[in-house]
Computed example of a mutant assay.
Amino acid sequence: MGSTDQCRDIEELNPLCQILLNKALEEIKSNGINPLVVETYRSQERQNYLYCQGRTINQATLKGISTSFARAYSNPKSCQITWTLNSIHTKRNAVDLVPQRNVKGKMTAIWNSNDKETKKIISIMTKYGFEAGAKWRTSPDSPHFQIKGVSSTAKSYSATNTNTYITKMIQKALNSKIKANLVVDGKWGSATTKAVNKFRAKQGWKEDGKVGVKTLNELLT
C-alpha cells in the first residue's frame, strides 16, 4: 500500500480505539445494519493528497504542502474532500463509516446523514465514545467519527488522557457495572478515578486509576 493509498484496516488504529470500534460494529450489526468501514488510519501524505483535491497548486502550497507534491497531486477540477491537514485519522483515532445495503440489486454505500441507518450508526458510535462529524455545526462530516484530544500512542484512558465523550462512556459503564452512581458529565474527577479503582479492585487488578485495554474490554462486556 502506497503512502497516499486508502487504509481500511481496523488494526492500524490505536488499540483502545480498536476496542471501541469493534464493540460499536458488533452492536451496529446486531441492529441489522451492514456497516462499511471506509477509512481508518491515514498517513500524512494521504491527508496532503486529499487536501490537494479541489485545490490549485498555489492553494496547496500556501498550506505548507511542498511544491513538488502539489504539482503531482493538485486537482482543482475535483471536489474538495477535506478542509484540514491535521486530521485525527493521522493520529490513529478516527474512522469513516457508513451503512451499505442493496439498492436495485447492487450493494451501495449510503452517504446520507438523514438516512435511518446512518442515524442509528451515529447513535451507537456516540455511545462508544466517538465524536460524530455529522454533529459539527460547521463543515459537518457525516461518515466521520473520531476520538479527539487523546494520545495516539496511549495504552490507557485516565484523568490526564481522556475527553468528554470517552469519559461519559466510561462513567455510564461504571454506573452499569458497579452501581458507581457517577454523574455522567464527561468530567474525569476524583469520583470517576475512585470508581475506576473500585472496578479494577473487583477484578483483582492494581488500583492505578487507568482504563487500559483489559479494563476497557471488561467494562464493555
Results as ranks from 00 to 15, higher is better:
His144Val: 11
Thr162Met: 07
Glu45Gln: 14
Lys120Gln: 15
Ile178Glu: 10
Cys17Asn: 11
Glu117Thr: 00
Thr215Ser: 09
Thr84Phe: 08
Lys63Glu: 14
Val211Trp: 04
Pro15Asn: 02
Asp5Tyr: 06
Val98Ser: 06
Gly64Trp: 05
Ser74Tyr: 06
Leu16Phe: 02
Thr118Asn: 07
Thr67Val: 09
Val95Ala: 06
Ile81Leu: 15
Glu12Ser: 12
Val183Asn: 06
Lys119Leu: 13
Lys210Leu: 05
Phe145Asn: 09
Ala72Trp: 00
Pro76Glu: 12
Leu25Phe: 01
Phe199Met: 08
Leu16Thr: 05
Lys202Val: 01
Tyr157Met: 07
Val213Lys: 14
Leu36Ser: 14
Lys91Ser: 09
Phe145Ala: 06
Thr118Arg: 03
Lys198Thr: 15
Leu220Ser: 01
Lys155Arg: 12
Lys91Asn: 09
Asn14Ile: 10
Glu12Asn: 12
Ala180Pro: 02
Trp205Pro: 00
Thr193Leu: 04
Ser74Asp: 13
Pro140Ala: 07
Trp188Glu: 05
Thr67Arg: 15
Gly105Ser: 07
Trp111His: 11
Cys52Gly: 06
Ile147Leu: 08
Ser142Glu: 07
Arg46His: 10
Lys120Ile: 14
Gln53Phe: 06
Lys23Met: 11
Leu182Phe: 02
Thr56Arg: 09
Gly133Ser: 08
Asn34Gln: 12
Ala159Ser: 15
Ile122Asp: 12
Lys194Phe: 00
Phe145His: 13
Gln171Thr: 07
Lys187Gly: 02
Gln203His: 09
Glu117Cys: 08
Tyr165Ile: 01
Thr167Val: 07
Cys52Gln: 06
Asn175Val: 05
Thr84Asp: 11
Gly204Pro: 10
Val211Pro: 03
Asn31Pro: 01
Glu117Lys: 14
Leu85Gln: 12
His144Ala: 03
Asn181Arg: 11
Glu45Phe: 07
Ile170Ala: 05
Ser74Glu: 01
Gln18Leu: 04
Gly149Tyr: 02
Lys120Trp: 00
Pro143Asn: 03
Thr153Asn: 12
Arg137Cys: 04
Ile170Val: 15
Ser142Tyr: 10
Asn175His: 07
Ala70Arg: 04
Ser68Thr: 15
Gly186Gln: 09
Pro140Asn: 10
Ser139Ile: 11
Trp83Gly: 12
Lys135Val: 05
Lys119Val: 12
Lys202Tyr: 00
Glu11Gln: 05
Ile124Lys: 06
Ala154Cys: 13
Tyr73Ser: 03
Val103Pro: 05
Val196Phe: 03
Gly129Pro: 07
Lys116Ser: 10
Pro76Arg: 08
Ile65Glu: 04
Thr82Asp: 04
Asn197His: 02
Glu27Cys: 03
Arg137Glu: 13
Ala201Tyr: 03
Ile88Ser: 00
Pro35Asn: 13
Tyr128Trp: 13
Glu117Ile: 01
